[in-house]
Simulated assay, not measured.
Amino acid sequence: MKKFLVLSLVTLTFILSGCATTGSAPPNEKRNLVKSMRANTLTQLYQQKPDVKQQIASSAGYAVFDNANVNVVLASFGGGYGVVKNNLTGKSTYMNMGEAGLGVGLGVKDFNVVMVFHNQAALNRFVEHGWAFGANADAAAKYEDTGGALVAEAIADQVTVYSLTENGLALQAVLKGTKFWIDSELNR
């Protein structure tokens, strides 16, 4: 069991280092990486759920995040980065995220989240406070184009959330908290 925990932590470190925007690259290059991730994620979501394109166009704004998550028996940890686009002002706000939770599960997965804010108050609340708390149950087994994972959809507090699994193997039921915060380096 001890070896499995160490392996899981090493795997988490590897995953998070592969998808984090930190490092020695200049801020402009990091912003371009986030914009590319956003474009790729939206393209994938529109292919699977074409009606979301109109939903985003008529919303107050949207956010797209890339997240890596590791679940080891009773604990879940994750982190990532993304951007919030305010459709009314045209402003983009770059953000980071981290999450931790408790629950039963085992696995590692890389997934993207798209949040659609149906009014300006919901968007402002997210950018200013950034907390999310909830329960999550899923099963994913996917590597590149092989395997499968559902496009999950949840609606709460004037926000619709879509989750798309990129890669991973996970079976989990977790109660977790997620903190989103503004990336001071990328918003200069």
Rank of each mutant, 00 (worst) to 15 (best):
M1D: 13
M1E: 13
K3H: 08
L5K: 04
V6S: 05
L7H: 10
L7R: 13
L12E: 12
L12C: 08
T13R: 11
T13E: 13
I15Q: 01
G18S: 12
G18A: 14
G23F: 10
A25L: 11
P27F: 05
N28D: 14
K30M: 09
R31A: 09
L33W: 15
K35R: 13
S36I: 15
M37K: 11
N40V: 10
L42N: 04
L42T: 03
T43A: 13
Y46A: 03
Q48H: 14
K49Y: 07
K49P: 00
P50F: 08
D51R: 09
D51P: 06
Q54W: 15
A60L: 01
A63P: 03
V64H: 02
F65Y: 07
A68E: 02
A68K: 01
V70Y: 05
V70N: 02
N71L: 14
V72P: 02
V73K: 10
L74H: 03
A75D: 03
A75V: 06
S76V: 04
G79M: 02
G79N: 01
G79K: 00
G82V: 04
N86E: 03
L88T: 14
L88I: 11
G90M: 02
K91I: 07
M95K: 03
M95C: 05
N96H: 11
E99D: 14
A100Y: 10
G101I: 00
G103E: 04
G105C: 00
G105D: 00
L106N: 03
L106P: 02
G107H: 03
G107E: 00
G107V: 00
N112I: 08
N112H: 14
V113Q: 01
V113P: 00
V114W: 00
A122G: 03
L123P: 00
N124F: 07
R125T: 10
R125H: 11
F126G: 01
W131V: 15
A132F: 12
A132T: 11
G134A: 08
A135H: 07
D138S: 10
A139I: 06
A140H: 00
E144R: 13
T146Q: 09
G147V: 08
E153I: 08
E153F: 05
I155F: 11
Q158S: 15
V159E: 04
V159I: 08
T160S: 09
T160E: 04
V161L: 09
Y162Q: 04
Y162W: 08
L164A: 05
L164P: 00
L164D: 04
T165W: 01
E166R: 14
G168E: 00
A170C: 10
A173I: 04
T178V: 10
T178G: 00
F180A: 06
F180D: 01
D183Y: 09
D183L: 07
S184A: 13
E185L: 07
E185M: 06
R188V: 14
